[in-house]
């Protein structure tokens, strides 16, 4: 289910990349896939997928669909889809997820909360397919 290669495929067409030399401050929002390799302070939200690199330092509440986290996050995380924590991940905050994988070595200092089945369905629902079903 959590094949790493297939997950990384999702980030090939990332619309936003924050490199290691960049420091972002404020409310960072995107609609496409986001890759963070640098520092971010504030809040981080995308309707798509999020990748946080090994050397990234994020001090923010984070919200996305699927997320792969290998760096440090100080703040709460909400992944509406699956959340993968790599061996170098350090999380200081509560985590909400639909599906979760944790590699050996990851540090979590907070509560883990699985999103309820009904909530998951709502969050992951594709508006286009909903529209089609209604029309039919």
């Amino acid at each position: 289910m959590f094949n790493k290669e297939s997950r990384l495929e999702k980030f090939k067409d990332a619309e936003t990349i924050i490199g290691a030399s960049i420091k972002v401050k404020g409310n960072f929002q995107g609609q496409g896939n986001i890759i963070i390799e640098g520092a971010l302070e504030g809040s981080l939200k995308t309707d798509s997928n999020l990748f946080i690199g090994e050397k990234a330092r994020v001090v923010a509440n984070v919200e996305s669909r699927d997320a792969i986290i290998n760096g440090e996050v100080k703040g709460n995380i909400k992944a509406k889809g699956y959340l993968a924590l790599g061996s170098s991940a350090k999380i200081f905050g509560d985590i909400q997820y639909s599906e979760l994988s944790i590699e050996k070595g990851a540090i979590i200092n907070g509560q883990l909360l699985a999103l309820a089945e009904e909530h998951r369905k709502n969050e992951n629902r594709n508006p286009e397919s909903d529209k089609k079903n209604t029309e039919e």
Binding site: I18, S21, I22, K23, V24, K25, G26, N27, F28, Q29, G42
Partner: peptide
Amino acid sequence: IDDYSLEIEERG
């Protein structure tokens, strides 16, 4: 940009 700022220290 919008609600956030980016700072760059490295040369480039």
